[in-house]
């Protein structure tokens, strides 16, 4: 199984980016091996609008089943739900911290979007 974490940098020790759509990196964590792979989202993060839709599309195509982030807006949430991904919010600290927090059941599984839409 794979998790994907919104990150401010390309390393697992970098801080989580609390914004889903405008995170510069997504770190894909393979739960079986414990390895991390970075996806560069810097171009899309700067989109004038629809950054969440674009980001969700990338995440949905990454093979991950679970997303760990700070907040997730309505459009990104719609795409992720349609793609069958689960979104956990409230991640803080480093990317590694977020994965541990999820493993210990400390993150909230979102049933509805919790972020403010931006244009």
């Amino acid at each position: 199984m794979k998790l994907i974490v919104t990150s401010q940098g390309p390393e697992a020790t970098d801080p989580v980016d609390p914004r889903f759509g405008r995170a510069p990196y997504f770190l894909v964590c393979d739960v079986e091996t414990g390895g991390f792979t970075a996806l560069d989202n810097r171009d899309q993060a700067a989109a004038a609008q629809g950054a969440g839709v674009q980001a969700a599309q990338i995440v949905a195509g990454s093979g991950a089943q679970i997303v760990l982030t700070g907040h997730c807006g309505p459009k990104a949430f719609a795409v992720l739900s349609e793609a069958g991904l689960q979104v956990y919010a409230g991640a803080t600290g480093s990317v590694q911290d977020a994965v541990h927090a999820w493993y210990e059941g400390k993150l909230e599984l979102l049933a509805t979007p919790d972020g403010i839409p931006h244009h």
Binding site: A48, Q49, G50, Q57, A60, V79
Partner: peptide
């Protein structure tokens, strides 16, 4: 369609394509 949309109004998933008309 999702690729050409400069406004990110279309999301293409493996088994469905979503449109966000307000974008």
């Amino acid at each position: 369609c999702a690729k050409i949309c400069a406004f990110n109004a279309i999301a293409c998933l493996p088994d469905r394509t979503l449109v966000f008309l307000d974008l």
